[in-house]
């Protein structure tokens, strides 16, 4: 006989009636972590591909933005901690079975990689503080004189980004108590989604920069990034990257769902939460349609010149990337054995 009525007099806040221990803070943290991971990978790739600074190029802003966004993400995580004063405990130990412990250490290692990448492409001028800039530029020259070191920085960015991006998904994927999360696909999925959102940010920044006046600070800030765009066609390499990332992302979501649907009853029920259950409206509308299908289609038409190039597709990608995290965190807590 199947259970018709299940009652419990447990009443713990955050646990009952439905688990809700992790809220928006964790979604923000996973989103920003993924975004930064993506920008590390793109930046690392850039470093390996063209280690030499090109004339007039200044490109510290990607990594510096990464430092800022990652700190914001960690701030959100910190907000979520119940015992904030003990946060240092994370760094008094390494727990090899705990993704969160891995994550804590990865975060710590990612910062120097990003700063080193920033050092490779110092700006030529800044509105103030040109004296320290001179010193920074000297360091940059010093690094550039050592190709193995530059290569190392590139690899560190690539590896750190991959580790960070994978970690944001693995963190959830190892929590077997929540069948929705219980998939190895979440690691690659969040990694690719992170790269997609990073590409969208760079794409956005380049668009803002392209429209800016030559001498403005905004242009200065973005001039390096603009080089990533093919000015002749107005078609960005970032757009091309992003189209591939989103296609892969859709495929990974499909694989994830197939994995769940072919598993136990609990896993099937978990998949159903997203596909047809309580979270389905948000999942289909916010993540799949708005966050993936719509930008894919729009950018395709932009690419072949059928419609005007606007900021809308990258904004949609960011929107979808955040809601992917938000919905996976929320629905996962609603899935149970």
């Amino acid at each position: 006989m199947t259970v018709l009525e299940l009652t419990s007099n447990r009443h713990n806040p955050g646990i009952d009636p439905l688990l809700n221990a992790w809220g928006w803070e964790i979604a923000v943290y996973l989103f920003l972590g993924g975004l930064v991971a993506g920008s590390l990978i793109l930046g690392g790739y850039r470093v390996l591909k063209s280690p030499r600074r090109q004339a007039g190029e200044s490109y510290p802003w990607g990594p510096l933005l990464g430092v800022l966004l990652l700190s914001l993400g960690m701030g959100a995580l910190f907000l979520d901690l119940g015992h904030k004063l003990s946060v240092g405990r994370l760094y008094l130990t390494f727990q090899p079975t705990s993704p969160m412990s891995w994550g804590a250490w990865i975060l710590l290692l990612v910062y120097p990689a990003m700063l080193a990448a920033a050092l490779l492409y110092p700006p030529e001028r800044v509105p103030f503080g040109n004296a320290p800039l001179a010193r920074v530029r000297a360091w940059s020259e010093w690094v550039h004189a050592r190709p193995r070191l530059v290569q190392g920085i590139g690899i560190a960015n690539l590896a750190g980004g991959a580790a960070l991006g994978l970690y944001t998904g693995v963190l959830l994927g190892t929590l077997g108590a929540r069948p929705l999360w219980n998939s190895a696909i979440l690691g690659p999925l969040f990694l690719i989604s992170g790269m997609s959102t990073a590409a969208a940010v760079l794409h956005l920044l380049s668009m803002v920069g392209a429209n800016a006046k030559q001498d403005s600070f905004g242009d200065l800030l973005l001039s390096g990034l603009v080089r990533l765009l093919n000015k002749d066609t107005g078609k960005s390499s970032m757009v091309r990257y992003d189209q591939s990332f989103m296609t892969i992302e859709l495929a990974l979501i499909g694989l994830w769902m197939i994995g769940l649907l072919t598993s136990t009853t609990a896993h099937r029920a978990a998949a159903a939460l997203l596909l047809s259950g309580a979270w389905a409206p948000q999942f289909w509308s916010l993540v799949v349609l708005t966050g993936l299908v719509a930008p894919l289609v729009l950018q395709h038409f932009e690419f072949i010149g059928r419609i005007r190039h606007t900021v809308i597709p990258p904004l949609l990608v960011l929107f979808g990337g955040f809601f992917l995290r938000f919905i996976v965190v929320g629905a996962g807590q609603g899935s149970h054995w």
Partner: peptide, 18 residues
């Protein structure tokens, strides 16, 4: 304990709380 709540998420019995 730093209160990260990972253990709360990890428990299939929802036996833990903050």
């Amino acid at each position: 304990c730093i209160g990260c709540k990972a253990c709360i998420e990890a428990c299939p019995y929802d036996a833990r709380f903050s």
